[in-house]
């Protein structure tokens, strides 16, 4: 359950962002999590929920997670392959036979925050 460590990192970043901004109360946080990031969204939300009692900054914060699918690119022909499920990925270009590079789907980011 490394989502606990991820949740703690999110709270640390939120504290820094809050200190640098004029926001007193963080009401909403948007996260971008790729399906190849190794983070289970449900487990992450659970970990954030568990942190609420000890971290006042997220006491009443709503978390919205935007999941990104896998996009992999052939560097030879430029074709982009998309996968909705990480177990379906095929990292070879069907026309060139070249290994693909993952260009999307590994993200773990805080997009923005809302507050008063």
């Amino acid at each position: 359950m490394h989502e606990g460590a991820i949740a703690e990192s999110i709270v640390d970043i939120l504290k820094r962002v809050k200190a640098e901004s004029s926001i007193d109360k963080v009401t909403k946080v948007r996260l971008k999590i790729g399906i190849m990031s190794g983070v289970m969204v449900d487990a992450l939300l659970f970990a954030l929920e568990a942190l609420r009692t000890e971290e006042s900054i997220i006491k009443e914060t709503e978390f919205e997670v935007i999941e990104t699918q896998v996009k992999a690119k052939c560097n030879l022909c430029g074709k982009i392959y998309s996968y909705n499920d990480s177990t379906d990925i095929v990292m070879l270009c069907e026309s060139c036979g070249m290994p693909l590079d993952i260009v999307e789907g590994k993200e773990m980011e805080i997009i923005d925050i809302e507050g008063d």
Binding site: V17, L31, M108, E109, D112, G115
Partner: peptide, 9 residues
Amino acid sequence: KRVAVEKKI
């Protein structure tokens, strides 16, 4: 208010 963060977790 909305603040763009765009930071890697």
